[in-house]
Computed example of a mutant assay.
Amino acid sequence: MVGRYDGYQDEETKLKDAIKLLDAKQKLLDNYTQQNNLKLQKVLMLVIAPSIEEAESIRTSLIVNCEFPPENILQVDSSKITDNLAQELQNIDNPHNPTRIIIAVGMLKEG
């Protein structure tokens, strides 16, 4: 959990802070697994959105404002459920899977 003394005034700041934390956690995990001769692991970030529109807005903000690679973002909502998505979710923990951020809508069958 991370917070700011001045609070969060906008979504962009929250997302940028979350990406910094994601990267820091990955570095720590990489060091730990290397020092202990463990299998490579991947850190993921989960963002819960209240609607498909908000999920799409978050995805756009990550790409445009945070300059996060789109191939590293997976959006999960009822408009995107396919066999390919199900397969990708099955392999989400694979270190070679490019997904680092998952944006999910709070409830499936959302409007």
Results as ranks from 00 to 15, higher is better:
3 G>C: 09
3 G>V: 01
4 R>F: 06
4 R>G: 06
5 Y>G: 09
6 D>W: 00
6 D>T: 03
6 D>I: 02
7 G>D: 08
8 Y>H: 04
8 Y>Q: 01
10 D>F: 03
11 E>M: 11
12 E>V: 07
12 E>G: 01
14 K>M: 14
14 K>A: 12
15 L>A: 03
15 L>K: 07
16 K>F: 05
16 K>I: 07
17 D>Q: 04
19 I>N: 08
21 L>S: 05
22 L>V: 01
23 D>R: 06
23 D>H: 04
24 A>K: 10
26 Q>Y: 01
26 Q>P: 02
26 Q>V: 02
30 D>R: 00
31 N>P: 04
31 N>L: 10
35 Q>A: 13
35 Q>E: 13
37 N>I: 08
40 L>C: 07
42 K>Y: 01
42 K>A: 13
43 V>C: 13
44 L>N: 11
45 M>P: 03
45 M>A: 07
46 L>T: 04
47 V>D: 06
47 V>C: 14
49 A>E: 11
51 S>A: 09
53 E>H: 00
56 E>M: 04
57 S>R: 12
58 I>A: 04
58 I>P: 00
59 R>P: 00
61 S>E: 08
65 N>V: 02
65 N>W: 01
65 N>M: 08
67 E>F: 00
68 F>L: 10
72 N>H: 11
72 N>I: 01
72 N>E: 13
72 N>V: 00
73 I>E: 08
74 L>R: 06
75 Q>P: 02
76 V>W: 02
78 S>R: 09
79 S>D: 14
80 K>Y: 04
85 L>R: 06
85 L>S: 08
85 L>N: 10
87 Q>N: 12
88 E>I: 05
88 E>C: 05
89 L>S: 10
89 L>W: 02
90 Q>M: 12
91 N>R: 15
91 N>D: 13
92 I>N: 07
94 N>A: 14
95 P>E: 15
96 H>L: 13
97 N>C: 15
97 N>Y: 01
98 P>E: 08
100 R>L: 15
100 R>Y: 04
101 I>E: 10
102 I>M: 15
105 V>Q: 12
105 V>G: 12
106 G>N: 12
107 M>A: 11
108 L>T: 03
109 K>W: 14
111 G>I: 07
111 G>W: 02
111 G>D: 15
